[in-house]
Design a protein around this nucleic acid. Structure first.
Lengths: 154, 154
DNA sequence: TATTAATTAAGAATCATTTTCCTTTTGATG
DNA sequence: CATCAAAAGGAAAATGATTCTTAATTAATA
C-alpha cells in the first residue's frame, strides 16, 4: 500500500505536536480546520501567505472559509506559535517553523523569503533598547532585494 | 511684526531644499500642495502618518485631497526623498528627515517612533546578503515595545 | 449520547490605499 | 498677455487585505 499523503518529516511532526499542545494548554479546541492550517505552517518553509494557506486547506476541507484561516492565524500568533511577517503592501506572510522573531530576506520580484541564521541580532535589539530608552519586546528585521534565481533572470 | 509661521530651523530648511531640488531634477513641478507636504516631512521628527500629514496640509489648503498626499508620498519615495515605514496593521509612517533605511523603535501603545543611530547595521545587511545569496537593496528594521512614557504609565 | 459553549461558514463591513475621471493649474510658447 | 498641452489636483469609486457579524454546526465532556 502506498501512502497518499507522505508522512511529515519528524521536525515538522514535532512542530505540529508543539502547536497542538500550545492550543490545548490555552484551552483551545483542535478542530480539523485548525489542524490543517497548523500542518501547513509546520510543513512549509516558503513562508506562505494567508491565501496560499487557504488554497491548501480548501483541498482538504472544501467549505473552509478564509475567515477561519485568519482566525486560526490570529490565535496561533497570540500563543507565539506562528511568526507574522507583516508587510504594508503585499499582505502578511507566516513562519510556523521558527515562530520567534528573526531576520528575513525578501525577494522584491518573486516574493521568495529566506531566513538564514544571523549573529548579533540580540545584541542589536539590546543596543536599540539602550539607545532609545524603549523596552523592546519583539522585532521585525526585513532585508529586501533579489533572490538568487531572480538575480540570474534579471 | 510677528511671524505667524515660525521660520523652519536650518536643518529642516536644508532638507526642504534637497527635496525640491530632487523634484526639479526629476522634471517634477513644485506645486503648493507638494511644497506643503514636503515642509511637513522635513519639519517633523514624529514620523507622521498619511492622515497626520493630510490634517496639516488641509489647514493651509482646505481643498486638498488625501489622494494628493498619497501621490506626493509615492513620488517622493520613488526619488528616495522619504522613507516609508510600512506596517501591516497600522498604516504607514514616514520619515522625511532621514530618507535612507535605518532602524526604528516603535511603541506598541502610543505609536511613538524613535530612531537612534545604531552601529553594525550595514554589516548585518552584508551578512544577510552573504548568507542568503540575495542581493540586498534596502531594509526595514523595526523593534517593537514600549516607549519611556508608556513604560512609566503601564 | 445529550448538552452547550466554542467554532465555523458566508458574506457584509472596514480600513488603508490606489485608481479613475474630470477639472484646474502650470509653464512654455507665440 | 493669450493660448495650449501636459501635469497635477480633487472627489469619489474601486480595490485588496483583513475583521466582524450572524446563524448554523461541531467538539469535548457529562
Amino acid at each position: 500500500m502506498t501512502r497518499r499523503q507522505p508522512a511529515p518529516p519528524e521536525q515538522s511532526q514535532r512542530r505540529i505536536e508543539e502547536m497542538t499542545e500550545a492550543l490545548r494548554q490555552a484551552g483551545q479546541r483542535i478542530t480539523p480546520q485548525r489542524l490543517a492550517v497548523l500542518k501547513i505552517l509546520a510543513g512549509s518553509s516558503e513562508h506562505p501567505s494567508v491565501e496560499r494557506i487557504y488554497e491548501q486547506v480548501v483541498r482538504e476541507f472544501p467549505t473552509t472559509s478564509l475567515a477561519t484561516v485568519y482566525k486560526t492565524l490570529t490565535l496561533l500568533k497570540s500563543l507565539d506559535q506562528v511568526l507574522e511577517l507583516g508587510f504594508a503592501h503585499w499582505g502578511s506572510r507566516y513562519d510556523g517553523k521558527t515562530p520567534h522573531p528573526h531576520p528575513h530576506a525578501v525577494c522584491l520580484i518573486c516574493g521568495a523569503i529566506a531566513d538564514p541564521e544571523l549573529p548579533h541580532v540580540e545584541e542589536m535589539a539590546q543596543e536599540m533598547a539602550r539607545r532609545s530608552g524603549y523596552r523592546i519586546d519583539r522585532h521585525q528585521l526585513d532585508f529586501f532585494g533579489l533572490c538568487p534565481d531572480c538575480r540570474k533572470k534579471a
